[in-house]
Structures are given as structure tokens and as C-alpha cells.
Design a protein around this nucleic acid. Structure first.
Lengths: 352, 352
DNA sequence: GTGAAAGCGCTAACAT
DNA sequence: ATGTTAGCGCTTTCAC
């Protein structure tokens, strides 16, 4: 059972090791009888080729290094799930390095720069030490990390973040269209006084989502009331604070709906609304973004936008392997955008 | 930059490859000057020893295979986080295989048996193909999986499940004491009429938690009223249904508190209570189990028991590597139990 | 179509 | 203390 090698198979089947290799890899045609003899011995012995030896010889490990900022980050699990699905059918494996930066990076999304050395050490080990064929970097926050990841001569694809570096590709989700769709959903339900709770104002998701929101207003012949916009920081408490502030208005100028740029802040807003003895969605409608697990557990269930993490991972893996083989639709692509979709639940009331 | 080997270092430093190997691994003493020369060349060139070649030669990959029933399963992320932390400082790596059985196993926890072949194929590849030194199997549900995992001659430790197989070790969390503590928390707040919503009745966590609950009652000189016990199936809707049923009682015999054996069912119970126009915790107190993310997002925030996933992973990795080296406190241990702890939040009212 | 043998980059036994 | 070299299990060139 233990350590049976290609030599054993060759001896048992009465052929050379070369022939065994040929039948395993289909690299040359082999006489049907011999072929069958080899196959029989292999299945009888449960022989598994030693990937380590194979890798050393071919200089290809069939391993994709997955470098995650933190596996507990909200997108990570789904993305790895997607990578895993692709990788399974294409005979690759995943070497996982979890940087565990959740605590150090919490709400300081720009601070990755300080982790540059740690990241590149890990990357360097993966590529030059473990000899992975390609690496997928999984961000915890959707942002631009140009300049962070040093140039290695292997495919690097970033999932859930972006980079302008030329040696790097990325797979990210669509932000603007779905923000527009979410806004449109509110408008179609009769809402005109819509408050916005943004994420950190200078971040790309905030700005892009705002673009989509503005577009939806414009398309409906409406104008976004700037006095109804509050800047949050993506965290629940900021949603609470912003909503609290919004609630100070006179009853007649109160927004009928609030769009928070993520579910966490939406929940915070719902906290504040409840505290003011108002009801969601009867008094105020609320929508979020991300479709986090919690959005289905709060009451009422939150209408939000779903980001397809699994597809991000799947496509990132596909892109990485296609860059490796030089074949396939993604072989020459730089950036990929995965569509997001509206998830209608119970927090929007029609006031038409 | 690309593919520099030990030969290059040797030539550059004017020593033999053996000497380079000795200084890298500290396997023999080397003259200080030579040693320094080698070190200098290494750092100047950013040389990274080829782990593949090293593995082939030493028959040790320094890789731990992580076989997860599903990385999206509730315990998986935290456990991997913990494994990762241990592994980082002990120079191991993680080869991740995500079985993605979430859908097929959903609420049919006993059905793993049907996946036996898939599991063992993956295991077999990990061990005989990828040559990992040890494997950690991560369950999605805490249960006994005796007979599922075939015997390989390498350490296998199961995280978040158990097995009676002799060739297998496990790291799991404490169930009985914390269930007792949770119950005691209710009792100490004056509750006597406590309803219980169990998980699937025949499962080990259900039975063990019930033991703890009974013990707490007994310790307080109380007796658990059997008519207040309902059997759920761990899912939210079952918590809802059980609570609905409980709520049919006359007002005077209504429980003042309900202990659900997990957070999901607790949330379901809260749904039913809200629907009956009752308030948590003013009318009925509710507690859960697991400390899932949602327990902090529902309103009011749920009092529950936290399972230390990170510690499970960390200790599983520690156990695996100590079995490998034959040294350390866990080298001869079979099973490890990680304490769980009460997390008091807002769903229990004192009625003393 | 098939086999002999070299060699991937390392470690470690052996020699000195 | 250090160098020489065999060999880990595979693939692949080269020869037949």
C-alpha cells in the first residue's frame, strides 16, 4: 500500500518505466495489450504517481497558490469555493496561505501598504519555494492595490480587488449597474426622497456605486438630494450614526427610503430606525449591498445586492490556468467583471 | 531572479553544495567564514530552496492536507484560520481540498456515508499523490464519522467531528459543560419554565447538550418539564415551528425562556415570538448556541455559547505535527476537547 | 512502439 | 569541517 513507484508498475507489467509513463500521461501511443497490462497493474495496486517527483522533473507543480488577506474576510470563503470547483476538474490543487490580516486591516483598508513585505514574502515563498504555477490573491476589501504585489514571472490574478500593475490580472464584481438597479428598485416603488449612506467616501466602491445611483436618478428624471447623503465607513455603527443624523429632520423632509452601501450599515440604519420607534419598511424602506448572511436574518429580511463570490473565484482560477496554457478565452484578458444581482426581500415598501 | 539553485549558491560562495545545504538546514557545523559567505550569497540572490526537490529527497513535504467537507460550512473558516496560524510558525503549508458537500449534505448529516468514496479518493490523492505529511479533516457538523475515513499510514486528525477509528484523532469542542452553564444563566435570572428546542434528536450534540441542561436543572433543584421540550432539526424554520407550537399553551403555562440548541433555531424562535406580538426578552427570553455571526445582528442581540473554532484548528494542526515528530504534549493523545464559553448579550431578562 | 538512461534540485552517506 | 556523489520518482531524449 505504502510507497509503490513507477518502477514497481513497470516490473509487474513487464514493461519499461518509460512505457508506464506513456500510458499514464498519454504522451505516446502504446500497444493496446501492453497498455491494458499497465492499466490493470495500476488499478490493482492503487498506484498513485508521485506528484513531487513529477513536479521536479516537469517544473510544473499543478498547484495554484491562494494568498488570502484573511480567510475570515467576508468574500474569501465563497471565492475559495469557486476556485476549488474549477481546480477540481482541471487537475490543479490549492496551496493556501492565509495572511490573517483581518484584525490589522479592520476598517483601515488602505493600510495594506504596511503589510507589503509580509505579502511579498508569502508570495515569494509560494512561487520560488513551493513552485506554484500561478497565484490568486484574495482581497478582503474591494480596492486598488497597485504597487503592492511585486512582479514574479508567473500569472497572478487578484480576486475582489484590482491593480493597475501590468503584470497582474483581476477578477472583480460589477458595481455601478447593480447600484443603479437597486436605486431603480426604490424609485419604482415610489420613493423619491432617498437617503444614501455611503461607504468610506474616497474608496472606489463608494464612488462607483454613487455613479450608479446618480444614473438611476437621472434616468427617472429625478435628482439626488445632496442633503440626504451621509458618509459612513462600511461598519454597522456608522450606519447607525448616519441614520440617527438623518432622523433629526422634520417629519415632512424625512427620507422615505435609505440606501446603505453595504448590509452592515443597512443593519445599523435599521437599528437607529427601530430606536426611533419607526418601522422598516412601513415608515422607512432600507436597502443594503453585499447580500451577507445577516441580511437574511435581520427582521425584516433585507433587500440587497448579491455579489457572486463563487463566480469570482471560479473565473479567477480559470483565468490563471488559461494564462498558463496560453489557451482559452481569458488567456489574453487583463480584467474580468462578474455581474451582481438584485435580491428583493422585505425591506422596501411600495408607496405608489 | 528566476531559477537559481543550490549549485549557483555553492559556486558563488566558493563551497560545495553540501556545505550550502549544511548552513541552510543547520545539519552540520560550518566554519563561520564560509557560513557567512554562503549566507551573504543567499540573501544577495534571494535564493529560495526548491521545496519540491527537497521533498523528493527527504520524503517529507512539510505540507498538511486540509480536507474540508465544505469551506462554506459554518466552522470551516475559523478552523482553517487556526490551522493557518499554527502552521505558519512551524514551517508547514496547507494543501486545501474543499469537498463542497454543503448542498448534498444539507441537513442530512448522516449522509456522509454516501460520500465515502469521494472523501477517500481525495484523501488518497492527498496522501499518496501529493504526499502530504498529515491530514486534517474538517467536518461541517459535529458528529461521529467512524468508518468513513480509511486507514492511511499518516496522522489524520478530525476537526469538529469525532471517530472511534483507532487510526484517527480528533479535536472537538466541549458541549455538556457549556450547555449546563447556559442553562444556569437562565436559572440564575429567575427562569424555571424553560422550553428546550433540541437539534436533531438522535445526534450527539443534541444528546450531550441535553445532558448539560439536565445537570443544570438538577444542580438548581429543578426538574426539566418534558412537555416543554421540542425537537428541531438545527434549521431556522424548525425553531420557528417549535416555538409556534410552544406558544399555543395557555398564558400561565407559557415558558418564560427558551433555550434553542443553536443560533439558527433561536432566530427562528424569535421570528415566531415576534409574530405572536410578544417581545424578546421582555415576554420571553431566548438563548442560542454557536455564536454565529447572525447572533450579533438579530435584534435583540442573542445570548449564546461560543465555540472556539480557531482553537480547534490551531490544536488540530499542533496535534498533527506533534504526531509527526513524536514529540510534544499531543504526540500520544487521541482526542482533544476545546472549552466553549458563554456569551451574554441581550436576550435574557432577569425575572427574579 | 519501446527501452535505456540522463537529469530535475536537493540531502546525506561516505570519504577525506 | 567539507567535498564527492548517489539517488529520491518521475519524464523525455535518444537510439533502436
Amino acid at each position: 500500500m505504502s510507497t509503490i513507484t513507477i518502477k514497481d508498475i513497470a516490473r509487474e507489467a513487464g514493461v519499461s518505466t518509460a512505457t508506464v509513463s506513456y500510458v499514464i500521461n498519454g504522451s505516446r501511443s502504446v500497444m493496446p495489450e501492453k497498455r491494458q497490462r499497465v492499466l490493470d497493474v495500476i488499478s490493482k495496486t492503487n498506484y498513485q504517481p508521485n506528484r513531487v517527483a513529477k513536479s521536479l522533473r516537469t517544473k510544473k507543480t499543478n498547484i495554484i497558490g491562494v494568498l488570502a488577506e484573511d480567510i475570515l474576510g467576508f468574500p474569501s470563503g465563497g471565492i475559495i469555493n469557486g476556485i476549488s470547483e474549477y481546480v477540481e476538474k482541471s487537475d490543479y490543487n490549492i496551496l493556501l496561505n492565509d495572511l490573517r490580516m483581518l484584525d490589522s486591516l479592520f476598517n483601515k483598508y488602505d493600510q495594506v501598504i504596511h503589510q507589503k513585505e509580509k505579502i511579498n514574502n508569502a508570495l515569494s515563498f509560494l512561487v520560488f519555494g513551493a513552485k506554484v504555477d500561478a497565484v490568486i490573491y484574495i482581497g478582503m476589501f474591494n480596492r486598488d492595490i497597485t504597487g503592492i504585489i511585486s512582479n514574479i514571472n508567473k500569472p497572478v490574478v487578484i480576486a475582489y480587488s484590482t491593480s493597475d500593475d501590468e503584470h497582474i490580472c483581476s477578477v472583480n464584481y460589477e458595481n455601478e449597474d447593480c447600484a443603479a438597479e437597486l436605486t431603480k428598485h426604490l424609485i419604482e416603488n415610489g420613493h423619491k426622497q432617498i437617503a444614501i449612506i455611503t461607504g468610506l467616501a474616497h474608496t472606489s466602491p463608494s464612488q462607483t456605486r454613487l455613479k450608479g445611483i446618480n444614473r438611476a436618478f437621472k434616468d427617472a428624471g429625478l435628482i439626488l438630494d445632496g442633503s440626504l447623503v451621509r458618509n459612513g465607513d462600511w461598519e454597522r455603527t456608522s450606519g447607525y450614526d448616519c441614520m440617527k443624523d438623518l432622523l433629526k429632520a422634520e417629519k415632512s423632509t424625512l427620507p422615505t427610503a435609505v440606501l446603505a452601501m453595504n448590509d452592515l450599515m443597512a443593519v445599523g440604519a435599521m437599528d437607529a430606525i427601530r430606536e426611533a420607534n419607526l418601522k422598516v419598511p412601513d415608515d422607512i424602506s432600507v436597502v443594503g449591498f453585499d447580500n451577507r448572511e445577516v441580511s437574511n436574518f435581520v427582521f425584516p429580511k433585507l433587500t440587497t445586492v448579491e455579489i457572486d463570490m463563487k463566480a469570482i473565484g471560479y473565473n479567477a482560477a480559470q483565468m490563471a490556468t488559461q494564462k498558463l496554457s496560453g489557451e482559452g478565452e481569458y488567456a489574453d484578458k487583463r480584467n474580468l467583471i462578474i455581474p451582481s444581482r438584485l435580491v428583493v426581500r422585505d425591506t422596501v415598501k411600495s408607496i405608489i
